[in-house]
C-alpha cells in the first residue's frame, strides 16, 4: 500500500514543550493535508507503531475562504485544505503558526487578528434613531478595488511571515491595515475615515511596517496588501500634514 510520511510538531498545551511525531498515512489520489489529519485522528499511532493522542487542528470551510486551517507546511505558512499532498515534498512537515499562542498541536489562538480589526474600527456604523435612507453610490472602480480587499479571511499568513510582527513589537499587521483601506474606500465608511487613520497612526500602527513585502507574496487571496499599506501611508501623511497646518 502506498503511504505518505508526515512529521508533525506537537505541543500538548500553551506552555508545554513542543516535540515531533512521525506518522504514516495511506495515500489517496488527490488527498489534501486535512484528509491525512482525519486519517490520523481515526487511529492515532505513530510511524514506529506507538499509540499516541490524536492531533488537534482547526478547519472549517475546506475551500480556502475561512482561514481556520492555516498552519506552517514544509516551512511555509498556508491553508492545509488547499495543500495537496501530491504537490508537497515528502516527508510533509506540519507545524503550528509561530506568531500566535498554541492552544494544542496545530491549533492556535488567532484572537489577535480580530482584536486588531477592533483597534482600527474595521466596520461602518449605520445605526441611528431614524432611517437614514440609502447611502451614497459607489463607483464601479472602487467596487472592484474594494471587492478584492473584502476577500481577506483574517487567516494570519501576512503576519506569520512579517519580520516586524513578533513578541517584541506592537505591530497590528497587514490584514487590519488593508481593512482600513477597504472601509475608508466605502462612501458611507468614508465618514469615519479620519478616525480609522488616527487609529493606525498610534502605537503599533502603520509606521511599524518595515517594507519586507512578504505579506503580499504569501497572501492566499492575493490581496494587494503592500498597495493598501502604501496607499494608507499617503493618507496618513496627508492627514498628519492637515493636522499640523490646520491645527
Amino acid at each position: 500500500m502506498k503511504t505518505v510520511h508526515f512529521k508533525i510538531k506537537r505541543q500538548l498545551d500553551k506552555n508545554s514543550r513542543p516535540f515531533w511525531e512521525d506518522f504514516e498515512v495511506p495515500y489517496r489520489p488527490g488527498m489534501n493535508v486535512i484528509i491525512a489529519l482525519l486519517d490520523i485522528a481515526k487511529n492515532p499511532v505513530t510511524k514506529s507503531g506507538k499509540k499516541t493522542t490524536s492531533i488537534a487542528w482547526d478547519c472549517n470551510c475546506l475551500e480556502e475562504v475561512c482561514g481556520a486551517c492555516t498552519m506552517v507546511i514544509n516551512g511555509k505558512v498556508r491553508q492545509s485544505c488547499s495543500a495537496l499532498v501530491d504537490q508537497l515534498e515528502k516527508p510533509i512537515r506540519l507545524e503550528p503558526m509561530s506568531k500566535f499562542p498554541v492552544v494544542r498541536d496545530l491549533k492556535v489562538d488567532r484572537q489577535f487578528m480580530f482584536d486588531a480589526l477592533k483597534r482600527v474600527k474595521a466596520w461602518i456604523p449605520i445605526d441611528g434613531t431614524y432611517d437614514l435612507g440609502p447611502g451614497p453610490k459607489m463607483s464601479d472602480q472602487d467596487q472592484q478595488t474594494g471587492y478584492k480587499l473584502s476577500q481577506c479571511m483574517t487567516c494570519g499568513c501576512c503576519v506569520e511571515v512579517c519580520p516586524q510582527f513578533n513578541d517584541r513589537s506592537e505591530f497590528i499587521g497587514a490584514a487590519a491595515l488593508s481593512q482600513v483601506r477597504l472601509f475608508n474606500l466605502h462612501p458611507t465608511g468614508k465618514m469615519q475615515k479620519e478616525e480609522r487613520l488616527a487609529a493606525i497612526m498610534g502605537e503599533g500602527g502603520i509606521e511599524d511596517c518595515g517594507n519586507s513585502q512578504n505579506c503580499v507574496k504569501v497572501c492566499p487571496k492575493e490581496i494587494p496588501l503592500t498597495t493598501s499599506i502604501a496607499d494608507l501611508n499617503r493618507d496618513t501623511t496627508l492627514f498628519a500634514l492637515k493636522k499640523i497646518f490646520q491645527g
Binding site: 511571515v161 519580520p163 517584541r168 518595515g210 517594507n211 519586507s212 512578504n214 507574496k217 504569501v218
Partner: peptide, 15 residues
C-alpha cells in the same frame, strides 16, 4: 529591536 529576520525561510527579493 522589533526585527526578527526570516529571509532564509521566505526568500523573496524584497525580504
Amino acid at each position: 529591536w522589533a526585527w526578527k529576520d526570516n529571509s532564509s525561510r521566505y526568500r523573496y527579493a524584497r525580504n
